Simulated assay, not measured.
Amino acid sequence: MPSPQALFDVQPQLATPIYRQVVEQVQRLVAGGQLRPGDELPSVRAVAERHAINPMTVSKAYSLLEAEGLLERRRGVGMVVAAGAQPARKGQDRLALLEPALLALARQAHQLGITPDQALKALARALESIDKDIP
């Protein structure tokens, strides 16, 4: 499991609202099996302070995830991954969560005149650099 401090990668410059970024990242972490039932999420305050964002933004994301059944509140602990949350069983299910980002990447590469081969090599380098950053 990623450390609570490194759980979210919030990027305010993106068009995607911050609360949505948090929601989608938790969905992917659960689908990928990196967050398991019972795992604690960082507190609203901790996430807000770390990323210099409004606590209400984090609270909104957590509430949406709770309504979706992915998270549950535990008195004295905070938000945890719900008991019924399971990783995606098939690679296709995980890829479906990645599809919007891949389409956006493809669109941007096309607009920049980057060939598919160049884009694939750049993606491979980016994936390798992420793998090196994860303890």
Rank of each mutant, 00 (worst) to 15 (best):
A122H: 06
R89W: 06
Q111S: 07
L65Y: 11
A101C: 04
E128T: 12
P17V: 04
T57P: 02
M79D: 06
R75M: 13
I134C: 09
Q25Y: 02
V30K: 08
R75P: 06
S43D: 08
P100D: 07
I53W: 02
L102Q: 11
L7A: 01
M56N: 11
L41S: 05
V47L: 04
A109T: 09
L112N: 15
G78F: 10
G38P: 09
Q118I: 04
T57I: 08
V23C: 04
K132Q: 14
S129G: 02
E49K: 09
H110E: 13
K90P: 00
F8T: 03
A88M: 10
E66Q: 15
L112Q: 15
G33Y: 11
V22M: 13
E99S: 06
K132W: 06
G84M: 09
K90C: 00
R75F: 11
A61W: 03
R125F: 13
Q86S: 13
D133P: 00
L65A: 09
L103Q: 08
L98W: 08
L98K: 12
L127G: 14
R36A: 13
S129Q: 14
P87A: 07
Y19P: 00
A15T: 09
A104K: 12
A31W: 06
Q111F: 02
L29T: 02
V26L: 04
T115H: 01
L14H: 01
P2A: 13
T57R: 00
E66Y: 08
L71Y: 05
P12G: 02
R94P: 02
A119S: 11
V30M: 10
Q111W: 03
H110K: 14
L71S: 07
A88N: 12
K121W: 09
P135V: 12
V47G: 04
I53F: 01
A46T: 12
P37G: 13
D117E: 07
